[in-house]
Amino acid sequence: MDVAIKQVSKLYPGKVRALDGVTLNIGTGTFGLLGPNGAGKTTLMRLVATLDVPTRGEITVGGIDCRRRPAEVRRLLGYLPQSFAAFRRLTAYEFLDYVGLLKGLDGPRRRRDIERMLELVGLTGAARARAGTFSGGMLQRLGIAQALLGDPALLIVDEPTAGLDPEERVRFRNLLAELGKDRTVILSTHIVADVERACRELALLAAGRVVFRGEPSELAALAAGAVWEVEVDEGTYERTRLSHQVVSAVSTGGGRFRLRVVGESPPPGAAGPATPTLEDGYMAVMRRQQRAQQAAG
């Protein structure tokens, strides 16, 4: 299922520009949409999910225009919003049944689908419990179950691992990667590790624009020669924070820190080059963006 986003801009009242000429073509597989908070990821997800319409540009899903034929697009998609909730007075089974009914699934298929989804997300034992009693992780699993009902060709998940414990997060990532084998999954997140483990391709959004598009290894490669590791004292750490992008800082005791930094030149101290990761690539691109913005205004 191809998703084509052509020159899409979205302006909110007060001339707030959430998206600015975004163009992306997304095919089968798990596609990551990465970016800081406020980059426009959720806005883009909402436009593809037909929850809003772009101010300019066009979005098609499988060749169907999201603005002109939204109901047809909705037949193809499953959506897990950023802050998922369920009707508190319904049980997990009843909630999925309700969503299945809204999606137009008929009796036997709906029941079969619900049971399969409950098993897939590990909620079979809690099927008769009210959603109001669920923990954050259980709710999130219920959210992915409702999104998958009806076997949608396009699955949109917005910040799905936020609030999950590490074990649930790993499980969730694996599930998303698995789902991406035979459908299009768009995973929007600001957690780099989620994209690194689950996505074949990604786009990096910043201030409403696509600033990178490619494979995770290509994004990591953008930081090649610009990632350093160094052990410094507290005073040097403070100076390094001003001159470089500190990716991680681990206290090694005695007021010393082992730093991983991104910057064009080596940081102060006996710094050695390090192999870049996706997170380093992300930080390098964001640093360049910030500098470009500062230079522009």
Partner: peptide, 17 residues
């Protein structure tokens, strides 16, 4: 109930809800 986006993307005909 915070379910608006789920219902609106699941519903085939929104005013029907």
């Amino acid at each position: 109930n915070g379910v608006g986006e789920v219902v609106r993307t699941a519903a085939r005909w929104r005013p029907g809800v």
